[in-house]
Amino acid sequence: MMEFLNFYLFPGILLGCIYALGAIGISLTFGILRFSNFAHGDTMVLGVYITLSFVWLTDLHPLVVMPLAMALTAFAMLGMDRAFFKPFRKSPPIMSVIASFGLMLMIRSAVQFFWGTQIQAMVKGIQPPLQWLQPLMLREKQLYILGGTVILMVAMHLLLTRTKIGKAMRAVSDNPDLAALTGINTERVVQATWILGASLAVAAGVFLALDTQVETNMGFKMLLPMFAAAILGGIGKPYGAVLGGMVIGIVEEVSAYPWIGTTPLLNPGYKAGVAFAIMVLMLIWRPQGLLRGRQF
């Protein structure tokens, strides 16, 4: 039992937190701007490298400098929106999709140019599990990830339900024409979407870097599970993205558990396929996703 919790369920939840934070941005962009943003993973990478630079400069813990990196990345994202996405706002969505694909390659190449392609460590060395939690094996950094995710989720929830801009975002996501008719400033909603999506992506990236390491391809590696999470949860539904991320993270890890006998139920080499199998089944049986998102 303890083995299942420590080595299969908790790692799955941690992975789920990271997927969930990343998937929110994808889901919102899809809901509000109506296109799949392939540059999302590399927005994450940009934020991680900015955080890393601050860590090098100040020697502070990555989580302390993360808010600054989130702000800078969100600011950069607003600039990129102006340059690459705004001209296509009235065009068919495929134009924006292609633009985002180009932007993805540009961001990654820029990061590789300025920071190099070497693998870096956000936090060096190995952390032992915390003693006071025995027999649960959780490390300090994992508590940070869990706690950080909860805080960000609550903040997002408050933003979407209690503030005017949050309500406007949900309105545009539900019905853009109606929202525009009621006098909602769509351009401001778009900006808020980029800021929220980019900030959460940076958090996901920094959490991932705390758990693993920093590399220029980390965003691209995360892109597919994040998309799967967004679709699973229901496109345009931030809470759905959270749920979808959790489901995919947990299923990926738990599928390797030896449920029957002593060998893994599924060869772990194929666990990436699990996320997609779930996604495909979902698209067939319930295309609106877990939380009744938009259908395409």
Partner: peptide, 14 residues
């Protein structure tokens, strides 16, 4: 194992 995953804890335990 499949490369490029964020975690291999389950595989390693097995």
């Amino acid at each position: 194992h499949e490369p490029n995953k964020a975690s291999y804890r389950a595989e390693i335990t097995t």
